[in-house]
Design a protein around this nucleic acid. Structure first.
Length: 265
DNA sequence: TCGATCCTGTAG
DNA sequence: CTACAGGATCGA
């Protein structure tokens, strides 16, 4: 489920629902979800108030009183939201923060690959020191991308998905941005010419912004948010909207890459 | 730079 | 049954 746009949607909802709430009790149902910390570490959040919500790439940072920060990574199937009654939630909930008003902030995660940790402000910086540029800030310019590209000979798709370069782009939006910019996902980054990189820059920003809009709407409704269709992602053997050739699926870095062999060459 | 690994669920 | 899933980390 979550790449930058979906994580951003989760954060916006939490700002509305969770900020100001007092954490009364922490219940860890699945010890490994706090890896590498011991579940008891999380219990230090009890008695603290939720002051603000921040997003760094795909990380959700919940700033608490007392200088503590909860860091949540949703990985593949995680979700984080407030339920009206802390005692009533699904069996997929790995951690529950019981709030003083009776509600619950729950970390739900079907595949249980997600992680939730508690940090002091010092070691938070250390944990996040490897995070790349925020593609939705003014620092992310075409010039920045040209520079970064010149320093990497990795295939374009893997470059985009590297969280230490650009923070937040994942498998779907990488594929979509490359299609929009008509770049072959296998092409070494340092071999892509400036006009293409400028197009890629615009595509990344556009697609993420549009993704946030869609995700905010999807997350505001109950139920299923996986009904969105994409231009190339998950469209193996379907005809390209632009040229009609069949979308191809290849594997890069152990992940599926979808692209149009006609448009992206 | 691979491949395995952490997990559960769904589609074919 | 197998393949694959919107992520990241680890060791070879």
């Amino acid at each position: 489920m979550p790449e930058l746009p979906e994580v951003e949607a989760v954060c916006r909802k939490l700002r509305r629902d969770a900020v100001g709430a007092l954490i009364e009790r922490v219940i860890v149902y699945r010890a490994r979800s706090t890896h590498p910390q011991h579940p008891s570490e999380l219990e230090r959040a009890a008695g603290q108030r939720i002051e603000s919500i921040e997003r760094r790439g795909k990380n959700i940072l919940i700033h608490l009183s007392g200088g503590l920060v909860l860091r949540v990574h949703l990985r593949m199937t995680g979700n984080l939201f407030v339920v009206p009654d802390a005692r009533l939630h699904s069996e997929r909930v790995r951690v529950c923060f019981a709030l003083q008003d009776g509600r619950g902030l729950v970390f739900e995660d079907t595949r249980a690959l997600g992680v939730i940790n508690l940090h002091g402000t010092e070691d938070l910086d250390r944990v996040l020191s490897d995070i790349g540029i925020n593609p939705l800030t003014r620092a992310f310019t075409p010039e920045w991308l040209v520079q970064a590209a010149s320093a990497s000979k990795r295939p374009a798709k893997l470059f985009l998905m590297d969280q230490s370069i650009i923070a937040g782009v994942g498998n779907i939006y990488a594929a979509e941005a490359l299609f929009r910019a008509r770049i072959d996902p296998r092409k070494p980054m340092n071999g892509i010419r400036r006009p293409k990189l400028e197009a890629l820059h615009a595509a990344i920003v556009d697609i993420l912004r549009q993704g946030i809009k869609a995700a905010v709407i999807a997350y505001s409704k109950p139920g299923d948010y996986s009904d969105t269709r994409f231009i190339v992602y998950d469209r193996k053997d379907e005809p390209c909207n632009t040229c009609g050739r069949k979308i191809q699926r290849i594997v890069q870095g152990g992940r599926s890459t979808y692209f149009c062999p006609g448009c992206q060459c």
